[in-house]
């Protein structure tokens, strides 16, 4: 639906970082709590951890015919390989969000808006759990882009994360939102 307002997001990293779940949380927030349309797809290797992993989300005001992301408006790179592999697809003028702890070699190009935060270090230092890096990232993404509302994101996290980890994940989301306020 080229006419409707639509955003395409690609989140990429390696298996075990929760990039697939991050996409699911985002899509669920849009559909169930912001009453938008969304589709989430993914690709990953046979490995449970360590191989490349990719999650894609399209959020739209209107129904979505083509479910695959080809030229993302937003690219989240949670690993060096992910950036190398997918930067070429990012739309000119798009948003590039990286985990600066894991992605050191930045390209010289300036055809996009770059935001960098050490998601995995913050997750480790402040939460003692590297695994919440994906939710901190979602907090930053929400704060920067307002693709979905903060309230929708909170509700989606509550229904998407393992039982008993809701509080920690909501704190991680809040942390990300706060980070986004200070560029």
């Amino acid at each position: 639906m080229s006419k409707a307002k639509k955003a395409e997001i690609r989140i990429a990293g390696f298996g075990g970082q929760g990039v697939v779940l991050a996409g699911v949380i985002l899509g669920r927030a849009a559909v169930l709590y912001d009453k938008k349309k969304a589709v989430q797809t993914q690709s990953y290797g046979a490995e449970a951890r360590g191989g490349g992993a990719r999650s894609e989300v399209i959020i739209s005001e209107d129904s979505i015919d083509y479910p695959k992301v080809m030229r993302p408006d937003i690219l989240v790179a949670m690993s060096e390989q992910a950036l190398d592999k997918y930067l070429k697809d990012l739309k000119p003028g798009g948003v590039l969000l990286i985990d600066s702890e894991l992605v050191k070699n930045l390209p010289p190009e300036q055809r996009f808006t770059l935001y960098k935060f050490p998601f995995s270090r913050i997750a480790n230092d402040e939460f003692g759990r590297t695994i919440v890096a994906n939710v901190i990232m979602l907090g930053v993404l929400t704060g920067l882009t307002r693709l979905v509302s903060f309230e929708a994101m909170k509700s989606s996290i509550k229904t998407s994360v393992p039982k008993g980890t809701e509080e920690m994940n909501l704190k991680a989301l809040k942390k990300g939102m706060d980070l986004a306020k200070v560029p």
Binding site: G27, R28, V31, K37, A38, V39, Q40, T41, Q42, P67
Partner: peptide, 9 residues
């Protein structure tokens, strides 16, 4: 695999 693994409303 595409339709089976895709998430939508």
């Amino acid at each position: 695999a595409f339709v089976g693994h895709m998430r939508e409303e």
